[in-house]
Amino acid sequence: MEIAFKFIGMTKSLVDGKAELTLDVPENCTVEESLGILGIDCRTTKQFHFAAVNDKKSELERILQPGDSVKVFPRSFGG
């Protein structure tokens, strides 16, 4: 199934600077697994803060559904 991804700010560097892309992922794929397909380890990647599915912050274990939109956010740290 096709899932749309959007990478916010510094997280673009995780996917060669692409702000948006579409990925074909297997059935029952979790948010974490889908990002793993893109080479992103959510647990250790500095730029990764959280992922939102359909504009709601999501657990990494959430199973994606057809038509879902995933947005990946960086940590906003500076002041």
Binding site: I8, G9, D55, K56, K57, K71
Partner: peptide
């Protein structure tokens, strides 16, 4: 809601946090 903005990428995103 959580608001993220990026001025170089022309975006504003509002996200629900539970």
């Amino acid at each position: 809601r959580y608001l993220a903005v990026d001025v170089w990428d022309n975006l504003s995103e509002y996200i629900d946090i539970e």
